[in-house]
Amino acid sequence: MQFRPRGNSMKGKIESGQLVTVEPIGARQLAKGDIILCKVNGSQYLHLIKAIQGERYQIGNNIGRINGWIGIGSIYGICTEILK
């Protein structure tokens, strides 16, 4: 899917309104630094994977905030393209 996220939490990686492509994770191995579409407190966000601990992923934005830990069930896809 493609969409244009709004907000400044990913500033420097994704600017507000840039077109992004998100694809299913599929067989990919998620890694620290990947940008994922995930569910946090009932809302969907694009966030960075900051750390991985077993089957848990610590997520946060690109301006220093850590949102906490989520499981794979809260990850909807991985950002594969950011268009200007």
Rank of each mutant, 00 (worst) to 15 (best):
M1C: 02
M1F: 05
M1G: 10
M1E: 10
F3I: 09
R4T: 14
P5V: 05
P5D: 06
P5K: 01
P5F: 08
G7Q: 07
N8K: 05
S9Q: 09
S9E: 10
S9M: 08
M10W: 03
M10S: 02
G12E: 07
G12K: 03
G12Y: 06
G12I: 09
K13T: 13
K13N: 06
I14D: 09
I14W: 10
I14Y: 11
S16W: 03
S16N: 00
S16C: 03
G17P: 10
Q18K: 13
L19I: 13
L19G: 11
V20R: 12
T21M: 11
P24Q: 08
I25E: 04
I25P: 02
I25N: 05
G26V: 08
G26Y: 11
G26K: 09
G26E: 05
G26L: 11
A27D: 13
A27M: 06
R28M: 12
R28Y: 05
R28W: 03
Q29Y: 03
Q29T: 14
L30A: 01
A31V: 00
K32M: 04
D34R: 03
D34S: 06
D34F: 03
D34M: 04
I35Y: 01
I35C: 05
I36A: 02
K39Q: 07
V40P: 01
V40T: 06
G42H: 13
G42V: 11
S43E: 15
S43W: 04
Q44L: 14
Q44P: 00
Y45F: 12
Y45W: 09
L46W: 01
L46I: 07
H47A: 02
L48T: 06
I49D: 04
K50R: 12
K50G: 00
K50F: 02
A51M: 09
A51S: 14
Q53Y: 08
G54E: 00
G54K: 05
E55K: 10
R56Q: 14
R56I: 00
R56L: 14
Y57H: 01
Q58V: 11
Q58M: 15
Q58G: 08
N62V: 03
I63K: 09
I63N: 05
G64H: 04
G64S: 03
R65P: 01
R65Y: 07
I66P: 00
N67T: 10
N67M: 13
N67H: 14
G68R: 13
G68T: 09
W69M: 09
W69Q: 11
I70A: 10
G71Y: 08
I72A: 12
I72F: 10
G73P: 02
G73A: 07
G73L: 09
S74N: 15
S74G: 13
Y76I: 05
Y76H: 14
G77F: 08
I78K: 07
C79V: 15
C79P: 01
E81W: 09
I82D: 09
I82Q: 10
L83G: 10
L83W: 08
L83N: 14
K84H: 13
K84L: 13
K84P: 15
K84E: 14
